[in-house]
Amino acid sequence: MLPTSLDEAVEALAASPAAVPVAGGTDLMEAVNAGRLRPAALIGLGRITELRGWRYEDGGTAVLGAGLTLARMDRPDFAALIPALADAARTAGPPQTRNVGTLGGNIATAAPAGDTLPVLAALEASVTLARPGATREVPVSHLLTGLDPMRPGELLTWVRVPLLNAPQVFLKATGRSGPSRATASVALVLDPARRAVRCAVGAVAPVPLRPLEAEAWVAGCIDWDARGEEGVPAIDPAASAAFGEYVATACVPDGYGADAASGLAVEGPTAVALRLRRTVAVLARRALGRALK
């Protein structure tokens, strides 16, 4: 099925609940080819042009279509709008997959290493879920943690992102120079209006993690008035480094990577945990540094 409008797609999905929506297919077809998934029918979303762009709402919010491709999000106009999301989209796989892979698909797949997810979590974005005659708004974090999951027959249509008009950064550590999944990632956004820093760590847990205490602590360390001024450091480098450690300890538990089945009591952080913490700490420190540059 290839609906050309949103309504048509929502109707089609309701009419055949066994059908599976497919956008770019870069996650879905991999599962089909590997034999992990045998959809009874497919509903292609590629022809729904209204979902492939974005619009503005109330001046302070961008409403992004679920069909926005990762490649489109990397273009300068979008990057000026939501820089961290553009950064994440730019590193999310090779050009071939980014040309067709979509924001909605990245969210719906909800992979631990999904690159847009920590950014959306840090931005406190929400999504619109549609079924015939009804829509509901769910914070991305609730969707991902399963607090309020997507229900059968629902279509993810829009992603609401607050526009902060301030520096924001997405940094990703990977195992190679070429396109690769994150081993850890950090999204960090400044919200000068609220004098707040929001940060999310990706790929270290099934869902992005928010180190709320570290965020609050570091917001107090920043000289918000000096920010952007030439030659005035907005934060003490030591505080910046401490923030990194704080985020890392908050997001990587001592027992990370320990063999749960072994049943041995964990004494202190595992070697894997220490390594991952180091990586997360460096990413968080660098992200803050770039945001305050």
């Binding site: 590193t91 120079s177 396109p179 660098r286």
Partner: peptide, 12 residues
């Protein structure tokens, strides 16, 4: 400068 970690990576 193509830093270790690749373009758009976390290199410093």
């Amino acid at each position: 400068w193509l830093l270790p970690g690749g373009p758009g990576g976390a290199g410093d």
